[in-house]
Design a protein around this nucleic acid. Structure first.
Lengths: 339, 339
DNA sequence: CTGTTAGCGCTTTCAA
DNA sequence: TTGAAAGCGCTAACAG
């Protein structure tokens, strides 16, 4: 298929130096005397030499690949992070190998193993909730790993994320400050999802601080999706008295809630306030515009890349602090109705 | 960093067979006599042996990696395709190395080279419009490549996509059938974007078939985005007489147009009809729900994977036919106003 | 600064 | 069906 590969030796022979010299030049031109640089580069160009990644990784024990496993690739939620990760490491000649787990722990475990087998030099994962044996496997292989989207510090690996608990606490507080006392919550499924757990706990904590609690009937757990959000909203609004505020643990739920409210003729925020979580592009465009939390998605990807690069470079970067998020107040929240 | 790697030899020694046998088992258990399979698998598990991808690719000349370059990873447009690609090839032990080009040809060229250097066994690209030298480079390396999102057959590599021209023709025809005669078009920038070119040409062709033409003032070329769509819509509606139909070459434009219309108090579809292109998740949820073309995004990714696998397996798959798309008529289009 | 010499871990003929 | 042996293309000591 491929005509005989052009190898380092071919280049070396053409220039009249040893393969080692060409290798040095390729990896760090400053290691080669100036007057050789030109000819070597010329030979490389002429032969269209491209180093063999596999051989390189075998000999150097470094593959120059970073693996990343996201819960999903279908949503644009993680796209920015992936993009930022890729950009962060591209400058050092690294590439990203991605996989998605479909929010399934078993699948995630499998993907991690595949990536490890493929010899990635570093790993980026989302969330800290998974079988500890996976973390052990990674640790045993000595592959540096960062965990994103969360900010606990008691995890097996450094976290580059934000405080989900506090963010959810803040949105809820915003609602409480507006006078709301009857709440409904739409949450993702909580098994194996520490982000969701932390968010729900944050909501509860804010409520508790004002002497309020969340009954099971006030929470709907469902799959991520706009349609699911519609349905959950509909269900929640069936109660009497109706809730006056709906806190959504993920943004698609909030979009669904807003669409459903419009269809059902329920005025937002006059009759019910709705909050989202993430501030994706639709949040500012939807009517009414969504009050939500802006999460540092791209920054997480970028910093994860930088962090891994730095570890791979032999440095010992300090454990990063939680990244800031931002409460974005828009039109979907307002004072609690008097009744 | 890594404790001494567990190698094939370790496994072989533990079982009491040769490395070659274990290698055969790993790659195709049926090549090893039945009674050895159990013990070998047991040893692999016990030692937690994981093959070294680099060594493998060096020895076998196959990296088991497929490279994919998308114009962007930020949008969910390509997410489904990426996911499907990944799933399609995962079963054969392949992984996806992704890169995004940010809709920049130079960046794309660079990404392709990086992927090639990393030794991907196959390549998936979006669109056929790029410097022919890149195609030559790929061909020279003998790396199988498929081009997605378009369906021309005169390209350097097989296409797995749909007919953008005809799809745009169809939406436009739908509008013409509804009696519309004054059109506005919101299009992405056309340089290096054959999808956009084909779509615009499709619109023009449909119009021409009814004796209509598109003046430069009736078209806005802009960056992809909802905000850009709003602005373009606003601009287009400034003309007198106003257009009664706005054809959008990409879905974010249509969302923006609908949002802007709502804000400006322009009734859709009574005063103006709006069409999208892609049928992303918001299309059915937005009010009014969007008339659009459903493009086979996931299928393109999946089929691209299968096609590459089949080529890599030594088969000579037939050139795939254009994939079907579907005109989805919803509420955002209606009869042209009488005036 | 450059060349020599060993492998890195695996696959793959080729014989047995 | 299995084993022995020869690399795959590159990097990393170590000399010089």
């Amino acid at each position: 298929m491929t005509r005989r590969r052009v190898t380092l030796d071919d280049v070396a022979r053409l220039v009249g130096v040893s393969a080692a010299t060409v290798s040095r030049f390729v990896n760090d031109p400053s290691k080669v005397r100036e007057h050789l640089r030109g000819p070597i580069q010329a030979a490389i160009d002429e032969l269209a030499y491209v180093p063999h990644g596999g051989a390189r990784s075998l000999a150097s024990r470094r593959s120059r690949m970073i693996g990343a496993v996201f819960p999903s690739l279908q949503t644009s939620l993680f796209g920015g992070a992936l993009d930022a990760l890729q950009n962060a490491i591209a400058s050092e000649g690294y590439t990203v190998v991605v996989a998605s787990s479909d929010y399934d722990p078993a699948c995630e475990a499998h993907q991690v193993q595949t990536l490890l087998a493929n010899g990635v030099d570093g790993l980026m994962l989302v969330g800290a909730a998974r079988d500890p044996r996976i973390h052990e496997l990674i640790a045993r292989k000595g592959v540096p790993c960062v965990i994103t989207w969360v900010s606990q510090s008691d995890t097996a690996f450094p976290c580059i994320g934000f405080d989900n608990h506090r963010a959810a606490f803040d949105v809820t507080n915003h609602l409480l400050d507006l006078g709301h006392r009857r709440f409904g919550v739409i949450s993702g499924r909580l098994e194996h999802n520490d982000r969701g757990q932390a968010r729900l706990a944050g909501v509860r904590a804010a409520l508790a601080a004002r002497g309020l609690a969340l009954a099971p009937e006030q929470i709907v757990y469902t799959r991520f999706g706009v349609a699911e959000g519609r349905e959950a909203f509909h269900h929640l609004m069936l109660r009497t008295p109706r809730p006056t505020a709906i806190v959504c643990g993920a943004e698609p739920f909030a979009y669904g809630a807003i669409f459903e409210a419009a269809e059902a003729g329920i005025a937002v925020p006059r009759e019910v306030s709705i909050t989202g979580f993430d501030d994706m592009w639709l949040a500012s465009q939807i009517t009414p515009a969504l009050t939500t939390v802006r999460t540092p998605r791209a920054r997480m990807g970028g910093m994860a890349g930088e962090y891994l690069l730095s570890v791979l470079g032999g440095e010992t970067p300090t454990t990063p602090r939680p990244l800031p998020y931002e409460l974005i107040v828009r039109r979907s929240t307002g004072p609690a109705p008097l009744a």
